[in-house]
Amino acid sequence: MSEPIMNQTASAESTKKAPIMSGVGLKQHYPVKQGFMKPPGLVKALDGVNFSVEAGKTLAVVGESGCGKSTLARLLTMIELPTEGELNFEGKNLLTLDRETRKELRQRIQIIFQNPYGSLNPRKKVGSILEEPLVINGKLTKAERKERALNLLQKVGLKPEHYDRYPHMFSGGQRQRIAIARGLMMNPKVVVADEPVSALDVSVQAQVLNLMMDLQQELDLAYVFISHDLSVVEHIADKVMVMYLGKVVEYGATEDIFTHPQHPYTRALLSSTPRIDPEHRIEKIQLTGELPSPLNPPSGCAFHGRCEFANERCKVETPALKDKTGESSVACFGIDENRLPYIDR
């Protein structure tokens, strides 16, 4: 069990600015049928994750497929409820609130999906897609709803005449703009972006990222930016949380993580990311093997099978996330025991 260490980090930060949203010890376990007459297995998609994000800031969640980052997105937007843990929004635990308040607050947390071709209802016009959240929740009149939709269309760089079109008439980048506009209809405080630009072309990707950053500044949004693309994360994030198999392995300010990665996994991720400029490249660290199955995770540190610095202790004991200097924290025995050669002290 990881202690709520990051909570301390969070409270240290709170002297500056209280986080708008935070999670403590979030767990999501799914029972899985393994076949007839066999006991059901347990997939620990999330296993004790703490996080916090402030208004106007971006927390990036990085990791490979199966690390639990998409599960985290589903928990944050309450598409699923966690098996265990606390989810605080503006100081209130969303999970213990009564239905009405929860429904109210839930509107302040919106999500943008990866695939702009699947996230817009193909049988509805852009106008009614945008207005749907208002129809469900709002007390606005039809004219007011339309006004707001047109307003947001313009804000994301689309034109009023797009109001009456169907999603299939738009390019991927434009659809993602529509999806962003829809997410903003209810004046959210937190936007969870689940790989929002991975399905887009490079040039369009930059347009959408710029738009997201502009909107963040203008509306003081907090982003939880989920991505596997480290070069994008480096640009947009303030804090980075690296996940591996349902656990956070490293957390810290973006610059720290990218210049001085501590956890061997973070380092491997960084080195695997291709770079155009030869000066940006660092020596490739080839990870052997693949991501272990979450149904049958290795004992001890989940990364030990692929880690070149692992020793006997790593195979048995699970490292906890420990505070390092500043606001960063790492879960690795190698750092405690001073046996990671790349960390100079």
Partner: peptide
């Protein structure tokens, strides 16, 4: 337009 090329800048150079 790659984020890598806009290091230290606020905006990406979008095409």
């Amino acid at each position: 337009s790659l984020p890598e090329s806009s290091e230290g800048k606020d905006r990406l150079n979008a095409l």
